[in-house]
Amino acid sequence: MALTMAAVSLLVFLVLELNVEGVATKVLGQFSTAGQRHAWLLQHGYFDPLPLRYGRWVLDFVTGRWGLSTYYHADVLQLVTPRLAASGLLMGVALLVIVPLALGLGVLAGMREGSPLDRGVSVLAIVTTSFPEFATAVFLSAIFVFWLGWLPGVSTLAGGATLKEFVLPVAVLALSSTGYIARMTRASMAEAMGQPYVRTALLKGASLRRIVFGHALRNALGAPVTVIMLQIPWLLSGVIVVEVFFAYPGFGTLLYQAAVNSDVYLIEACAMVGVIAVVASQVLSDLINAWLDPRLLAAARHGPVVAAPAVDLSAPERRVAGL
């Protein structure tokens, strides 16, 4: 994990800071002279050996000295924090809609594989996920802003966060990722429902409700949780389309502006924040999975021996051997 972060930070550093002349031009502007750039580079230690510069760069990042944005003329840390909070808010609201909806639909569909309900959910999920966000955003805004006039066209949060301004961005995000999670849940649920212990419970006369909630659900949630956690970094950077379309003042628009204006320190900070978000969400996903399935923890502690027979039992060669 730390290795991932180190590797990515090195990559970000090399891509953006290796060309020192480029950095100086971006910071001092196109009207600067070669002499000014040289003096600036010297003053900021850009002619020191690369490992030293990298070390200093990492230290600066860790201690929160992220530099000055060349486009906004403001401290990068102070720029990123409110934007991150705004994106966090959008993401939180989106997840509140996506997760219950996706899990609910997925469980309903997966309980009875092949039922009309299952088919319906699957078709709906495939159709909605197949629309890219930029298309969904245009469709929804054509209907609800231009035609019906029910919803605001941009979500700038200028007058504070209002529920109305969240409807469209959240709807676009929900439409594109609910279907995917629902289908993962459905597959996982269907698999769980086919397990011997479900059959045993069924033969013992347990109600469907009890089987689903008492036995199958917990086992079926492993894969969807991983997918949901993977959605967090996606939401953080992948919402660029949605944020820019609705002029939402979040992390995505900031990253977009930084890239468009080649604001080098801001791009570096945004990239690093993105990396932290990915790594953190993966850690969280591992922890939740461990809680859902204690066998994983045991496996980590004692090696894979304990979990192995459970898998091997269903292997065909054992069946042949008479087990």
């Binding site: 231009f146 006039g149 605001p152 066209g153 200028a158 820019v244 002029a247």
Partner: peptide, 21 residues
């Protein structure tokens, strides 16, 4: 007078005008 920067996409600006924002 409040000036708002809605980014470079004029379609977004029109949406804001249509919605009375």
């Amino acid at each position: 007078i409040d000036y708002v920067d809605l980014g470079p996409d004029v379609a977004t600006h029109v949406a804001a005008l249509a919605a009375g924002q």
